[in-house]
Every structure is written in C-alpha cells, then in structure tokens.
Amino acid sequence: MEDKKPTLITKGRYELKFRGTKCLNCGHLLDVSDKYCPNCSQANSTKKLILRDFWDEFFSSIINYDSKLLKTLYALLVKPGTITKDYIKGKRIAYTNPFRFLLSLAFLYFLMATYDNSLSNLDSLGLEDKIEKTGPLSYGFKTADSTDTKKQTDEVLGQLDSIRNLERIPGIQNLDSLQNLINQGVRAEAKKDSFMLVNPRKYFENLQNKNAGGLGARMEFFFTFLQKDSIKTFEEAKEKYGANESWRNKVAFNGSKSSLKAIAQPGTYLNNTIAKLPLVIFFFLPIFTVFLRVAYIRKKYTYTDHLIFSFHNQSLLFILLIISLIIDTIFNMASAGLFLLIFGFYLYKAMRRFYGQGRIKTILKYIFLNTMFTLLALFVIIVLFTGSVFTY
C-alpha cells in the first residue's frame, strides 16, 4: 500500500516509473509502491535531478505549509479549543507545530509593532546633555542647592502651620524640632556628597570596608563618576577608585553604565527591550501553565497538554493583535481594545470546549486564571525592563 506522506507532487521524479527497490540514501529495501523510504524518509526516486525538479519541490513545500497554516488559522478562529483536542489526540500532520507557530507569530507581531513607531524619537530629547549638565547624584534631574533646599523647607513648614495638635506626632513636639530634623538631614546629605567629591577613592574604600555599602550606594557612586570622570571600563574604576573584584562592584558598575545609556537613549532602550519579549513568552507560558494544571487538576491531561492549550490561545491573541495593527494602519484608528475583548470571548469558548466543564465552573476558573496571568505578566515585564537596564 502506498505510503501517504504529505506531498502535492505526482509528476516528475515522483512518477511510478522512477521508483526503485532500494533506498539510495540508507540502502533500505523498498517496494515500488513506496513513495518514501520508511527508514529515512528520503523520496524513492532514481531519476536524475533537473532544475525543474527543484522548482516543483520548492513550490510544493510552500503550498503544503500554506495549507497547514490556513487550516490552523481556521481552527483557531472558528473552532477555539478544538485544535488543541485534535492535536493531543494525534491529529497533528494537518496543523502547524504550536511551539514554532507561536514563536513565528510573536516575532511577526513585535516586528510590526516596533516598525516605524515613535519610540525612537525619544532619543532626540537630549537627555544625554541634561545628564552631563546636572550635578552628581541628580539622576537626570537638577540637584537642589542650598537656596532650593531652604525654599522647600519653608514651604513644608508653612503647610505644617495649618496642622493642629502637632505635638501628638511621636518624636515631634513643635515646629522647631521638625526644623532641626530637616536641617540635620540636609547637612548630612551635603556632607556625604562633599566627601564623595573631594576624596572619591577614600569614600569608595569606606563603602567596601566590611561590605558596609550596599548595591544602591555603590551604584550611586559609579553613576556620579561615570559622568564626572568619564571612566569607561571597570578596570579604570579599579585603578582610580580602588574597587575590588567583588560581584557588588561589578553589578553596580555595569548597572550604572547601562542606566546612563538607557537614559541617554530611551527610545533605543525600549525598542531593544520589546524585541526580547517573544523569547520571554516561552519562559512565561510554562510558568503560567502550572496554574492551568492546578485549576484543572482533576482532568486527565498532562502538563504538556495544558502547555499546548496555552500556546494555541497565545497564538490566537497574536493573530488578533496582528489584525488589529493592520486595521489601525489602514484606517488610522485604535482597535486593540476591541480585539482584546474578542480574545476574551474566544478564550472562554476554548476553555469550555477543551476542558468540557459547565459555565459556572468555567467562569470561576476563567477569572482565576486571567488574574494569575495578569499578575505574572506584570512581574515578568518588571523583571524584563529592570534586567534590561543592567544589560543594555
């Protein structure tokens, strides 16, 4: 019986008259009815290759992939949840691989979303010049001098005049004590900044002694002198400030350097970070799938079954967002909110069809899973953008 391998080619070197009785690749014995070798999958053909054969195979592979793609898109859009059922039951040859399909959609979406966007315009705001013009420890903002500090203090005290019974606040019996506390804080901060600028090497040595200075204090130091002294490498920091090879120093230096670069080029930083999201999704969804399995722990599905369900639904989300981007580009409108609502309805239908539970149970689990998805997504985004600052 003829082997039903997927192909649209029935002519050329695939004709019956060109079939042999032995595989030319692995030597496996064949029947003339075998279109492919069952051992290595090479086509059973003894015909000499010509240019037309290459063209026919190339054209066939495109049509074959497109047929899978169209069937996958149809199943996702018209019968949510059904595609996952079919896939885990073994009906896989008709659909595209869910993992590869999602990765392709993710890259396509973020490529479209970041193409010709306005984020790159943020680089022209001149933030780099503002950083260089500001003083130490300013982090891109103007450092307050003594006049500004006094003015701010007077404003605070003026507001406190309208507060009755101030004596009830623990540790503050009158406005004079509050004024003293503020003045002490201002003087201590000014003294610390002055010491840092006058003798930076000694200041940093004090931070290193017995690990007294945490990561934040060391980043503050490097952030200041990366601007003032224009040091470029950690080796220069070691030589000039006596920084040792500790992990705190290296992380603080690299983090400060990357932060300055991100502030100077915010648009490029955001685009580079967004470009990492497709790969982040493949770390995020396996974690979310744990909650999906817990929610349906009584169902006889494996972790991989739940993961495939997650990949299919995430693929549907990207398909809808891509359609939204196309519509927005053509008609100059904002339709993302509408398509997210459509996805919410599709997700509910997919859960009902795939897991086969009633409306009330599905709605409760729908709320729980979407809540966990949102919290995990926020956490992953915070970690991604924070980590990008240290690695940019």
Rank of each mutant, 00 (worst) to 15 (best):
S177P: 01
L178K: 02
L178C: 03
Q179Y: 11
N180E: 14
N180Q: 13
N180P: 00
I182P: 01
N183W: 02
G185E: 11
G185A: 12
V186M: 03
E189G: 08
A190I: 06
K192T: 09
K192H: 01
D193T: 12
D193W: 07
S194G: 09
S194A: 13
M196E: 03
M196R: 01
L197T: 00
N199E: 11
P200C: 06
P200A: 09
R201W: 03
K202G: 14
E205S: 12
E205C: 05
E205F: 08
Q208L: 14
N209F: 13
N209I: 06
N211P: 05
A212M: 14
G213M: 05
L215S: 10
L215H: 10
G216K: 12
G216H: 10
R218L: 01
R218Y: 02
M219S: 03
E220A: 11
F221E: 08
F221N: 08
F222M: 10
F222V: 05
T224K: 01
F225R: 02
L226W: 00
L226M: 02
L226E: 00
K228H: 03
K228I: 08
D229G: 09
S230L: 10
S230C: 07
S230T: 01
I231R: 00
I231D: 11
I231T: 04
K232S: 12
K232D: 10
T233H: 08
E235Y: 03
E235K: 07
E236F: 07
